[in-house]
């Protein structure tokens, strides 16, 4: 018997056994970027770690017992859930002139791209976080970050988004490019816009 076939029949036996006690199970899938994370399934008896694409385990099943779940079974059990998956959020970075709420010319030109992303979604919501470099005090920068975020919110706010906007500031506490204090760094003067 071929390896694949043996493996398949083993999986069926395991699935069958798991099915007797409880049909609840988990299947791990690869991420969109091709990497695969891990899932830990803990029950009364202990924990089972899933590490491979399509690897599954019964919830509350025997510890360490995993099986491979076929495409067919995934489609049957999860087709509707997978089809309902919302579009992945898009993230944009906009940059500012030093100590100011003026966008750089390049970032100004990026605004239409954000609006397009907003218009391509059925019920968009956005989050905007303003950031600064380390020139100036913590408090000033927290306020400047918030001003930057609000400015961006005004520029991309549309009736389509309505009140589904949240604005915040990390001031100089979340540097994209680590620097000492009081250092002008264009890459840190930014607003991060997430369109969901």
């Amino acid at each position: 018997m071929g390896y694949a076939l043996r493996r398949a029949s083993l999986a069926m036996i395991v699935l069958g056994l798991a099915g007797c006690a409880n049909r609840s199970y988990v299947v791990l899938l690869s991420n969109d970027d091709g990497t695969t994370g891990k899932v830990l399934v803990s029950g009364r008896g202990g924990a089972t770690l899933l590490e491979k694409h399509h690897e599954g385990a019964a919830i509350g099943g025997p510890t360490g017992k995993t099986f491979i779940v076929s495409e067919d079974k995934i489609a049957k059990d999860f087709g509707a859930a997978m089809a309902a998956r919302p579009k992945k959020p898009s993230i944009f970075l906009l940059y500012f002139e030093t100590g100011d709420t003026r966008l750089t010319p390049e970032s100004k030109a990026d605004i239409p791209k954000i609006l397009e992303e907003v218009n391509n979604r059925p019920a968009p919501d956005i989050s905007i976080i303003g950031h600064t470099d380390t020139v100036g005090s913590d408090d000033e920068n927290l306020a400047l970050g918030l001003m930057r975020a609000r400015l961006v919110a005004e520029r991309i706010g549309t009736t389509k988004i309505g009140d589904r906007v949240s604005v915040g500031s990390h001031g100089e506490k979340n540097l994209l490019q680590p620097t000492p204090d009081n250092t002008a760094e264009p890459r840190n003067r930014r607003a991060e816009v997430t369109v969901r």
């Binding site: 609840s24 988990v26 803990s42 999860f78």
Partner: peptide
């Protein structure tokens, strides 16, 4: 949490069916 156990996530994409 599910009736028969808990799923912990280590940065990933998964499916789960609960009876």
């Amino acid at each position: 949490k599910t009736p028969t156990g808990t799923i912990g996530v280590r940065g990933t994409h998964f499916l789960t069916k609960v009876e």
